[in-house]
């Protein structure tokens, strides 16, 4: 099957007084219809900037997409003018955020906002758009959707607002849904409900999902494939099962060893990754992970390791492993 989303060689920088911040460097990946791809990595590694680049929502200036292509069903979004891009947002590619209030307008009822999204992309009557809004709220399992459609965002609980945002994002059946930490601010029982919902909608509508998270548990439970980012670059890629079972990159090895596991037994120590993530305006010359890496050799300080296929469907960027 041809992928619906194909990102290749994407690079995004920020021009700041402290120099050029290389937030996303040469990142490539693709996602098929109905597939979930997770992007994982620590705070500041460029996950959100990757997502905003796909949506062409990078604030510019200071930001700038300097290279790459983002193809949705064959169309390169980076070549579109702004009106052309506006037509794509919502109908072809949509995004949900950690904080629903960044997407929802506090002054409009939830139903009205969803209906407006529908009217923007489809030639339908006001009544049909309103009906679609209610249908979408029902679809994301909001009880009493007719009544809820008339409520304002602040009248809803956090979990309910997250659902409403998902309803709005999916109202025009986009081919690609980007979910940036959609459950990080939610309680675990609500997180489970929202993740179930995204999974079900993906199956029903065949949406390709890009799920951004730093929670490896969420990745393990929801993603078919994953990419690992470190300091703005993709450092490893593969199926979720394969990467958890046999990670190649020392960074992913370290991450997996540093999280507590159930039933590990009394007094076991967690493995630590020493040091901290480097600043993106002052990256080391070689592998960005080298200063923290226990496997590093001289070459690692010298040159950036290329992404290499380690096994079929599994690639990593490391000189050693």
């Amino acid at each position: 099957m041809a992928p619906v989303l194909e990102v290749s060689g994407l690079s995004t920088v920020f021009h700041t007084r402290a120099g050029i911040v290389r937030a996303v460097q040469d990142v490539s990946f693709s996602v098929e219809a109905g597939e979930t791809l997770a992007i994982v990595g620590e705070s500041g590694c460029g996950k959100t900037m990757t997502a905003l680049s796909l949506m062409r929502l990078i604030p510019s200036p200071p930001g700038e997409i300097t290279a790459g292509s983002v193809k949705v069903a064959g169309t390169d979004l980076l070549k579109l003018d702004e009106p052309g891009m506006r037509k794509m947002r919502g109908s072809q590619i949509a995004m949900i955020f950690q904080e629903p209030m960044t997407a929802l307008n506090p002054l409009l009822t939830v139903g009205r906002q969803i209906a407006e999204m529908v009217s923007l992309h489809e030639n339908v009557s006001r009544r049909a758009a309103n009906a679609r809004a209610v249908e979408m709220l029902h679809h994301v399992r909001i009880p009493a959707p007719e009544r809820r459609a008339r409520e304002y965002p602040h009248q809803m609980s956090g979990g309910m607002r997250q659902r409403a945002m998902i309803a709005m994002a999916l109202a025009c059946r986009p081919k690609v849904l980007i979910a940036d930490e959609p459950t990080t601010a939610l309680d675990v029982t609500i997180q489970a409900q929202v993740l179930d919902l995204i999974g079900d909608l993906r199956k029903e509508l065949g949406t390709a999902v890009v799920l951004i998270t730093h929670d490896l548990g969420v990745v393990a439970e929801t993603a078919d494939r994953m990419i690992v980012m470190y300091a703005g670059r993709k450092v490893e890629e593969g199926t979720t099962k394969d990467l958890f079972a046999d990670p190649s990159h020392p960074y992913l090895q370290g991450l997996l060893a540093s999280i507590p596991k159930f039933g590990a037994g009394e007094g076991t120590r967690l493995r630590e990754i020493p040091g901290i993530v480097p600043a993106l305006n002052n990256l080391p010359k070689g592998c960005a992970f080298a200063p923290r890496c226990s496997a590093a050799v001289a070459k690692c300080q010298e040159a950036i390791p290329p992404l290499e296929t380690k096994r079929p469907g599994h690639a990593a960027a490391c000189w050693v492993t």
Partner: peptide
């Protein structure tokens, strides 16, 4: 319910779980 909701960082034990509904 709480334990069933916690995502486990092990894709080989991915289960079809029943999740508790509703808000706190």
């Amino acid at each position: 319910a709480l334990m069933a909701a916690v995502p486990v960082a092990d894709p080989s034990v991915r289960r079809d779980k029943k999740h508790v509904m509703g808000d706190v």
